[in-house]
Nucleic acid binder design. Structure first.
Lengths: 128, 128
DNA sequence: ATGACTGTATGATAACACCCATACAGTAGC
DNA sequence: GCTACTGTATGGGTGTTATCATACAGTCAT
């Protein structure tokens, strides 16, 4: 039934917590492409939040290309297409990587620590 | 004179753009510890924004431990202390790495591409 | 075609983010 | 102590974010 863990007082918005966790489940393969997600209402009551909050999360995920919603039928994990050109991907990756690198440097982490952490997380998520 | 490039219509707030770029300059060593930053007013007029916007950026950087402000004297790059325990650092790194990994997977990037991007950015920033 | 499930749309509200104008206060050279 | 520089503090305006309550509309098994 896809257990999500929400902290309403964490400062990060509920809809974003939902998004992030579903994204993670999709990336890690726990949610397969085409699989049906919990219905908006079901998830809303399960998390004790308003349905509109879930709508927001699902809608954003749809815009991000991770989810597909069909009226009357439900919400489903999108068939991953990856409509980014090699150039766009490279640029986006660079931006994400820089953010990580700068934050890590700020914290006093060594390069090795950073690389290891990234490899660890990639393992949980990638299927190359 | 520390040239910053700001885009007011990028969606990302001005104060955050200022923060990010200064953080990057510090991390990359272009701004050394103890060095004086541009004064709030000088930077504000240079970027054609209100001084309060710069105040916000500097204040947040101060809270992040990257900058130190002294009334009447100026704002300076903080002596990096790194007050995080090994455990805290590890946890923070994991969180950053996971975010990167999930986003990258979403975009269809391979593990190798991700690692290479991270190594590239670390090179620009680290001094191990 | 009714019932029970799906997603969709609208409108309200409270909080916060962002930016601004302006006034206050410490520091240091003249 | 005046002047010209520093950061600090306060209050306001505008827009967006985040969440809610409630009503609308498509799908499908019975």
């Amino acid at each position: 039934m896809l257990h999500l863990q929400i902290n309403p007082n964490s400062g990060v918005p509920v809809y974003r917590q939902v998004m992030d966790q579903i994204k993670y489940y999709i990336a890690s393969g726990l949610l397969a492409a085409g699989e049906q997600l919990p219905s908006i209402r079901a998830l809303a009551t399960s998390l004790a939040v308003n349905p509109t909050t879930i709508v927001k999360a699902y809608t954003e995920l749809q815009h991000a290309g991770a989810v597909e919603m069909k009226q009357g039928k439900g919400a489903f994990v999108a068939e991953s297409v990856g409509g980014l050109s090699e150039k766009q991907l490279s640029k986006a990756l660079q931006q994400l990587a820089r953010q990580l690198a700068v934050e890590a440097a700020q914290m006093g982490a060594t390069s090795q620590q950073v690389i290891e952490a990234v490899q660890e997380e990639l393992k949980k998520v990638q299927h190359d």
